[in-house]
Design a protein around this nucleic acid. Sequence first.
DNA 1: CCAAAATGAGTGATTACTCACTTACTTTGG
DNA 2: CCAAAGTAAGTGAGTAATCACTCATTTTGG
Lengths: 213, 213
Amino acid sequence: MSDASYVNPLRGVSAVDGTNKAKIERAALWLFAEHGVDGVSTKSIAQRAGVSEGLLYRYFKNKETLARELMRAIHIRLTEMIMAAASREAGLADQVSFIVRHYCEIADDDWTLFRYHILHLHHFPSLSDAAGHSSGGGWPNSPHMAAVKLLSAAMEAGVIARGDANILAAMALGVVLQPAQAKVLGAFDGPLSAHVPLFEAGVLSVLNLTKEA
Amino acid sequence: MSDASYVNPLRGVSAVDGTNKAKIERAALWLFAEHGVDGVSTKSIAQRAGVSEGLLYRYFKNKETLARELMRAIHIRLTEMIMAAASREAGLADQVSFIVRHYCEIADDDWTLFRYHILHLHHFPSLSDAAGHSSGGGWPNSPHMAAVKLLSAAMEAGVIARGDANILAAMALGVVLQPAQAKVLGAFDGPLSAHVPLFEAGVLSVLNLTKEA
DNA sequence: CCAAAATGAGTGATTACTCACTTACTTTGG
DNA sequence: CCAAAGTAAGTGAGTAATCACTCATTTTGG
């Protein structure tokens, strides 16, 4: 529970302030999440934001840039949160707890932004592709790669059995991400955070299994 | 291993035969998987299929219908596979093994179709929405709901601890689905089936945890 | 010889984006 | 103190390209 040092940064996406730029971002975000980037017209964004269509191009180079900027905000936010977990030194269980809790917190905090990330990340290959999965020693640039790095370190330290960290990271993330996707698709209501203890137990369970495999 | 009674039905999506209808379906499928329904023009489908644009409308009412028919094929296929697992009576572990193995098999068998399902199911609310999550006693019409039904029965029978079958089903599915998504996004290569034993162990591990919770 | 298959030019609607212009402030100079 | 000049914000009609879809016509195969 002692993670007061980590603050959830909300950068890139303006909160709901009065500026027209923020209005455009929130309007675009909701429409992109709902209909996908290619399913939304600049006209509809301007209408929803209550501004003229031309104004979009004062703040953003084009529609695609606007869409990418929004995606980058949540993508980086999630990635850095997992990196923050990896830098903690209270053990793997603590790191898992940290990630699960903050992941749900970030999702609940701006559900539209999170929904956009879950549903439409694949629209941006540069953020999600093999480019982002480079196994080099550099900084991980996706939640998945950050998790891989964390688990690789745990394997190195002998905390969990050695194995394919890439697959194991995906399995562990899936325990939280699939319920999130299910909620996005309407399978249940209420905050994701309500299920944090269940998710934590599930992730730890998946990680421990490698001991006997 | 004794599931010879279950045959993987490939219905709806023509295999690669010589007919122009099949050519159109395969061309559209690949483009839809790659760029999303709204990111693909009828012109590009016709070009890739090597037929005229007008021919699309002899076989399909419109672009959206074509896209939905393809999605329905894989969606129903996965749902019925899980229902087939639920009707087996050799115990939960056997059912899990059946689902994991056949899920990976279906994915590997037509990776483009599976990729389309993973990335773009949300484009069809009628297939993925709360409508498909109706908790009534009718037939489940999504993989998620079929899994919920299976786990509810297991809870009823006392095989696993009672709990929120909706969330638990999502967690269990996530152990397989998230690696699948990771592969779709390029995190690793090779067939999904290569990891079946690991997935099986992971799913069982997640399900057993409820015993002590 | 004809019905079904296939074509591709054509339709009106919609697209992302531009640009000449207005409006609302702020800064400057006497 | 205040008019003039300058600047950034905002507008919306306009543009060329593309969109999904239609249909009169031609090709094909039995």
